[in-house]
Amino acid sequence: MRWVATFREADAVSGGILAVFGVFVLFQSLQLRFYIEGVPGPGFFPALLGIALMVTGVALVVTRLRTPRGTAEEFRLPGRHEAMRSLGLWVAVMAAALLVGSLGFLLTMFLLVAVILFVIERRRGLSSVITAIAVPLLVWLLFAELLQVRLPAGPFGS
């Protein structure tokens, strides 16, 4: 079962969220000074931006809800299979970003590419093993060796 709607509803929802976020921004920026000696201070623009976000968020809700039903394009949340792939990939990349400091560049990137190919892509051939080794190694040669960028070293020195 998948939730199907149009951009009419979807935009109304995102407009609402943004309006609330605008209120949050406004409150946060009230902690900064709005004016200093007659001149706009650090809180001036953030406060205005918060208000503008509120106004545009509400405007988005209102304009969308005033369009007649059924005229907007279909809005589709990614299905379970698709979400598993895109969000799964994101989680893998985030994990790699968190681990690369302690595991080092080569090992982490090898693991990342291996996870992508073996788990997300389900390609369990020799070519995947080669890719998982070759991609990080080539990038490492290019950046660390040729261009002398200091990449995170990790426990094994590289």
Partner: peptide, 15 residues
């Protein structure tokens, strides 16, 4: 290609 894009993006931003 896309694992390569990700690895290059990470290294590029890190550098």
């Amino acid at each position: 290609l896309y694992p390569g894009i990700i690895v290059i993006s990470v290294v590029g931003v890190y550098s």
